[in-house]
């Protein structure tokens, strides 16, 4: 019951208990970072804050994570911002095909954007940390050495990665994740377009022995907390969580990059993964063909009353800064 939990917060001898909901399966990176955050919070608070985690969408699913936290179904939730198109006009700038090379740089950029602009889209909740995936890359049944090989190929994608697939000349197909292995095996789709750790985490290397590095769009996540629950926390705890926020974003980025490298190594050893990269020329073509993604974003952001040009300029600068 909430009221008794609130009085717990006042009384320091009783630990504060927080529930933390997450939507993907327990072994995925968003859940690994959740467990790390839990460990870190319990350590830094000397056991005064206890976190109970609920992976796999058992408490809240991707589509109702944000509202669920606002309404108090969970104290904390990991929001997949890319699963809620239209809801985050400012942060979605980081989703544009800017060519991020790592999760560390995309995560730090997202956090920097949030920290500077404090956009209205997240005002109903307290943001505890943010992070983003490594770039989407192509994993395919047959080698794709350049854009020419990709033309007309059916690829599983979602959200802004779908639009980028179409821009590169592929045909994006949306399908629920559980159907992907079967669809790959039967050649209903010829590949998938997402970050590469799924080669090992979801065993996609079994069907996709070939990867092509294109540095496509990233997916964004925000870990958010119910405002009332946040306000009820003792100031020392609030300060501790605030200090943890950028550190957690950085940790997650680094972990995700290292984990992706491991997954590729595993796929090489176990399934003979071959890795290709788009030529500079192909990259330029893809960028040019994806230009309307930027126009559309600018339009939507301006309509939401945001300084779209400034945000975009900042995001590009941060990307460059964090990738050095």
């Amino acid at each position: 019951d909430n009221s008794s939990a609130d009085s717990d917060a006042a009384n320091q001898s009783e630990p504060i208990r927080l529930t933390y909901a997450n939507f993907p399966p327990a072994f995925t990176v968003p859940c690994v970072q959740m467990e790390r955050w839990k460990t870190e919070v319990e350590k830094r608070s000397n056991g005064q804050v206890l976190v109970e985690t609920f992976p796999g969408g058992t408490l809240l699913k991707a589509k109702n994570m944000l509202r669920g936290v606002v309404e108090g179904q969970a104290d904390i939730g990991c929001v997949g911002m890319s699963y809620l198109p239209g809801v985050f006009p400012a942060c979605s700038a980081v989703e544009l095909p800017l060519g991020f090379e790592s999760s560390r740089s995309s995560s730090r950029t997202l956090w920097a954007l949030f920290d500077k602009y404090r956009p209205e889209e997240l005002q109903d909740v307290k943001v505890l940390t943010m992070f983003a995936t490594p770039p989407s890359n192509i994993m395919s049944r047959e080698p794709i050495r350049g854009l020419a090989d990709l033309q007309g190929k059916e690829m599983r994608g979602s959200g802004s990665s779908s639009r980028f697939l179409d821009a590169m000349g592929a045909v994006s197909v949306s399908m629920p994740m559980p159907e992907v292995p079967d669809a790959l095996q039967k050649n209903m789709v010829q590949g998938i377009f997402t970050s590469l750790e799924v080669l090992q985490d979801m065993k996609f290397a079994e069907f996709c022995p070939s990867a092509t590095i294109v540095d496509g769009p990233v997916y964004l996540f925000a870990v958010v907390m119910n405002k009332d629950r946040w306000d009820a926390l003792p100031p020392a705890t609030q300060q501790m969580l605030d200090e943890l926020a950028p550190d957690q974003a950085d940790w997650t980025g680094q972990y995700w990059d290292a984990h992706t490298a491991e997954a590729m190594e595993w796929a090489r050893a176990e399934h003979g993964l071959q890795v290709f990269a788009l030529s500079e020329e192909d990259r330029a073509t893809a960028s040019a063909q994806a230009a309307d993604m930027f126009t559309d974003w600018t339009q939507a952001a301006s309509k939401a009353g945001l300084p779209a040009e400034d945000i975009l300029q900042d995001v590009r600068a941060w990307k460059q800064q964090f990738e050095q």
Binding site: L66, R67, Y83, L84, P85, G86, V87, P89, S158, G159, S162, S174
Partner: peptide, 19 residues
């Protein structure tokens, strides 16, 4: 009530980006 929240947040569908 949830439908009203969808209008307020401006959430769109994943692929077709339908309200």
């Amino acid at each position: 009530r949830w439908g009203m929240d969808l209008i307020r947040s401006g959430e769109l569908s994943s692929t077709l980006r339908l309200a």
